[in-house]
Write a protein that binds this DNA or RNA. Sequence first.
RNA 1: GCCCCCGUAGCUCAGUGGAUAGAGCACCUGGUUGCGGACCAGGAGGUCAGAGGUUCAAAUCCUCUCGGGGGUGCCA
Length: 555
Amino acid sequence: MTVRQDLAALIEKALGKAQDIGALPQFPPPPVEVTPTKPQFGDYSSNVALTLARVARMSPLQIAEIIRQHMPVNEMLSEVSVAPPGFLNMRLDPIWLARRVEDIEAKGRTWSHSSVGRGKKVQVEFVSANPTGPLHFGGARNAVLGDTLARVLAAVGYEVQREYYVNDAGTQMRKFGETLYARYAQALGEDIPVPEDGYMGQYMVEYGRHIAAQHGRRFLDMDREKAIEALTDLGLEIVLEGLKKDLADLRVEFDNWFSERSLYRDGTFEKVLALLRERGYMYEKDGAVWFAATKLGGDKDEVIIRSTGEPGYFASDIAYHYNKFVLRGFDWVIDVWAVDHQGHVPRMKIMMQALGLDPDRLTIVLYNLVTLKRHGQEVKLSKRSGDIITLREVLDEVGPDPIRFMLLTRSNESKIDFDLGLAVEETQENPVYYVQYAHTRIAGILRKARSDGWEDWSDGDVTLLTHPSEQALLKKIIDLPDLLITVADRLEPHHLTYYAQELATQFHAFYRDCRVVDPANPEMTKARLRLVAAVKTIFAHLLEDLLGMSAPEVM
RNA sequence: GCCCCCGUAGCUCAGUGGAUAGAGCACCUGGUUGCGGACCAGGAGGUCAGAGGUUCAAAUCCUCUCGGGGGUGCCA
């Protein structure tokens, strides 16, 4: 149970008790929310009394007062008070708060975890960029967003699978194969032009050369179609290897790389088509096969199989999601998409209905685009030449930490300007180092303590930790489990970076006010070393486990 | 045309029904005979784009207007 959950439970008990003895009229138990509040009011606050005024037909102030009188005796709170127009304010007991250090010591990095996910199977599908070349820097936002969500969902008790959908079928792959064939042939001195709408990037030339060097002329000697097929597979291998490497360096790993082709090969596609036909959602018109989205409230029907006989992307999306929900049994699926795909969200929901699935089991997280800047000047992510700014280039220039942190400092729907100059600047405009410095500073304190001869401080008395700055720091810490629940609930990981900055601020303020290693006061030193070590655990957890960054011992 | 997102301090942005709207940067004042100053404290800075509405309570929900972005293919 988190602090907010515990306090809400106390209020619920008080409400029940007041109703039992007739101090409050009967009404169904309301949802009780407890939120942190400003110091002048207390530590936490609840507005239940305000929401109950109508149903209880009493003034909010009266209701709050009755709740206050019936609050169960407990060790968490030192004071419960009522404030107009009807707030219930609670102050934590300083000793109880100080003892949270023992909790953190006992549980370590899993201290922030909760079980609101109740082991539900959730899949986060993200990145899923066409495997036709290296990852565009814009894709980094998708990667960081999906990865961080997966980390947080796991922390709050979901069983999470991370998946990359490999679009290895369809027209883009065909174009890729044809382009690669041309580049391969050119590498061997043949004058074969790249198709009009092919992939013009320099990387395709390199792939061609690479394959030419490894395999010689053998693909030129075979049937062109066969050669393209073989080259497509070889190219795909090279691309996937690169994607895995780049993503791994961004500290993003996937549990599964799901092949679109497999849907056609194992019969899933045909099966789903038959299912939809059986349910009356399919018809033919103008030589194409259509999905009757309008039957389920959609704006217009959608082409499933083009008149050329090729299935469109929507067709494989249907089969793919059938596979996720029906064949693999995910309770919940989260797809992470850039906003320019927003138009597909409604039809995905309709598809769920057509498959007889609850649309709420599919959540599409949309995020806005990233523009790359250097000293305030925009750098185009893709050029007419087909060359792009790759994730690899930015990784090599600034490293994974600033990329991850910066891409999480904005809400999903907000655009991001990523400034390459700023990302590595060690100034106050760059919050990345500010947060990491807090961790480093603690490491420095612990080093200092050991070099001064402190070896074992496990018997320190944590109840001495009642200085306002110690208490403020602890209050910030104990909000983390609730924060993770909020992030998981709203699928908004940017709250993590704000929290990290606030926690760092509280730590730096503590550092200013409270000397840790103090030979004149060994008892306080041991207590504070316990505190500081616990805070270090929290920072390490936040940075490494949740944000996927490094938590440096020295900077 | 229709649909979606955004508009909050000079700048970049948090804040999705509660109390006096916050942070960082920039600007102005200060702070170390200290465990790492990559730090800290204080000040100044607001018609929450505008207008109506719902509510005990609105930056937040609803309607309209203005401004910016995106979407609206037998592309993905």
